[in-house]
Design a protein around this nucleic acid. Structure first.
Length: 376
RNA sequence: GUGGAUAUAGCUCAGUUGGUUAGAGUGCCAGGUUGUGGCCCUGGAGGUCGUCGGUUCGAACCCGAUUAUCCACC
C-alpha cells in the first residue's frame, strides 16, 4: 500500500508498505545483482549505509545458483541475510543487454547464457515462477527494453507485445501467490511502461497499463541511448498518466542530477548501477561534485573522500590511503568506495525526502541538480 | 677462458629485401560509464632503437669494436 504523505508541486514524499517493511519514498534501491552488492558488501553492512531496499536479479540468480535452490534454502531474504524489502528485476533487461544469440517470439525469448552458453527460454510465466521461487518482495514484469533510438514500427510492435506479456505476468503471479507453499503469498508485481522516444506510444502504453491493477508502475527503456533532455521529456509525457496512489519507479536511473529531476517530475523509486560500478573504479560522488580518486592530485591528500560525509570510509580513512589501495588493487579499496557511494545515494534520498517535507525541495533542487554531477 | 644468443617506451615484446613522423600490449596521466560480466570505451604523455665508430643518398635493420645480461662448453 502506498500512502502519499506530502507533496511539493509534482515531487512526492510517500510511504510504501510491503510485507517486508515500509519504504520511505523517494528511495534508491541498492543493486545486488547476484545476491550481493558488488565490492564486498554484506547484508549486515546495508543498515549502516542507510539502505532501505535491495535489488536482486532474476536472470542472474536463475542461472546461478538457480531459483529452485534458493527456494529450497528458504528464499532470497534468508539466503542473502537481508530481511528488508527486495525487488527482483524480471530478467527482461539482462536478456536484451547480456545474452548473445537471442530470439524474441510471442511466447518469450530464446537466448544463450552468458555464463556457459547454455540455451535458455524465458517468457512472462517463467519469469514470474522464478521470482516467486526467489520470494522477493516486489517482482517486475517481463518486458522488452528497446535501445534508443529504434524505428517507430519496431517499438510499436514491441510495446504491444510487452502489454500482452504484462497480462500474462499478472495472471501467472496471481496463480503463484495462491499456490500452496509459496514463500511470499503477498508478492507484489509492478508493470513497466515502454515506448522508446515516441510520445504517443509512451502515453498510450501508460494509459493502457494503468488500467491493469498492479502494485506499482515503472518507466523502463530510458537512459538507454537517448539524450538527457529526451529522457526528461518522456517522463513529462508519461507521469501524468501514472496512477497517483501507486509507487512510480524509474528503472536504471541515474546520476544524482537525474534523480533530482525525476523526483521533481513525480518519481518515487530508483535504481542504478552507477554508484556501485563507478565506486569500484574510484569514481566517487560527494556533496561538492564527482571526483576520481585515481587522480594524482589525491596522492598525499589526507582529507576524507567527502568532509561532509558520515560513511565508514569517510569516518576512518583518507583519500591518499584509499587511492593507494585502488592503485594496489586491494579489495578494501572497492569496499570502502562502494560503501561511500551507496551511503551518499541513500543520504541524497533522505535529504530529498526532508526537503519535500519542509517544502524546500525547489531550493534543494536549485542548489544541487547541476552541482552533484559536476567533476571536481 | 672459448663459442653462441640477446639488447627497441617504466615492464613484456613486434618491427618486411635498409626508405616519410619507430609500433602493440601492459603500466602511467586524464575523460566517459544510467533495470551490473570486478568490466568496457575514448584520448594523452613517454623511446639518442645498449655505447662508439664505419658502409650508404638514407641505418633499429648491414659491418667492426666495446659494454651488459643469459646459455653451452673448457
Amino acid at each position: 500500500m502506498y500512502t502519499l504523505k506530502q507533496q511539493e508541486k509534482q515531487a512526492r514524499r510517500g510511504e510504501f508498505l510491503t510485507p517486508h517493511g515500509a519504504i520511505q519514498t523517494p528511495a534508491f534501491m541498492n543493486v545486488a545483482t547476484a545476491g550481493a552488492i558488488k565490492g564486498g558488501i554484506s547484508a549486515y553492512d546495508l543498515k549502516k549505509l542507510h539502505c532501505q531496499v535491495q535489488l536482486c536479479n532474476t536472470y542472474h540468480l536463475h542461472l546461478r545458483p538457480s531459483d529452485t535452490r534458493i527456494q529450497r534454502l528458504g528464499g532470497v531474504h534468508r539466503f542473502t541475510g537481508w530481511e528488508g524489502p527486495i525487488l527482483t528485476d524480471s530478467g527482461g533487461f539482462q536478456v536484451f543487454s547480456l545474452a548473445p544469440l537471442r530470439k524474441i517470439r510471442e511466447e518469450g525469448v530464446y537466448f544463450a547464457s552468458h555464463i556457459d552458453g547454455c540455451r535458455i527460454f524465458m517468457g512472462p510465466e517463467e519469469s514470474m515462477k522464478i521470482q516467486s521461487n526467489l520470494g522477493s518482495t516486489i517482482a517486475m514484469a517481463f518486458d522488452e527494453c528497446v535501445e534508443n533510438p529504434a524505428p517507430y514500427d519496431y517499438v510499436k510492435a514491441s510495446v504491444e507485445r510487452t502489454v500482452r506479456w504484462l497480462l500474462r505476468c499478472k495472471r501467472q503471479m496471481d496463480h503463484c501467490n495462491q499456490s500452496e507453499g509459496t514463500l511470499n503469498p503477498r508478492q507484489m508485481l509492478f508493470g513497466i511502461n515502454q515506448g522508446g522516444t515516441y510520445d504517443d506510444l509512451r502515453a498510450d502504453n501508460m494509459r493502457r497499463i494503468a488500467e491493469i491493477p498492479m502494485d506499482g508502475y515503472a518507466i523502463g527503456g530510458l537512459a538507454v541511448g537517448e539524450s538527457k533532455e529526451e529522457m526528461y521529456h518522456i517522463m513529462d509525457v508519461v507521469v501524468p498518466h501514472m496512477p497517483q496512489d501507486k509507487p512510480r519507479y524509474l528503472m536504471g536511473v541515474g546520476k544524482p542530477g537525474n534523480i533530482i529531476e525525476a523526483v521533481s517530475r513525480g518519481i518515487d523509486l530508483f535504481d542504478c548501477v552507477m554508484p556501485s560500478r563507478n565506486a569500484r573504479h574510484g569514481h566517487l560522488f560527494t556533496w561538492q561534485g564527482v571526483l576520481n580518486l585515481n587522480n594524482r592530485r589525491y596522492e598525499e591528500d589526507m582529507l576524507p573522500i567527502d568532509p561532509h560525509c558520515g560513511c565508514p570510509a569517510c569516518r576512518h580513512h583518507s583519500r591518499a590511503y584509499i587511492r593507494h589501495l585502488l592503485k594496489a588493487h586491494e579489495l578494501l579499496a572497492m569496499r570502502l568506495c562502494v560503501q561511500h557511494n551507496l551511503y551518499f545515494y541513500n543520504t541524497l534520498m533522505e535529504r530529498i525526502r526532508e526537503s519535500i517535507e519542509q517544502g524546500s525541495f525547489a531550493s534543494f533542487k536549485n542548489q544541487y541538480v547541476d552541482l552533484l554531477d559536476t567533476r571536481i
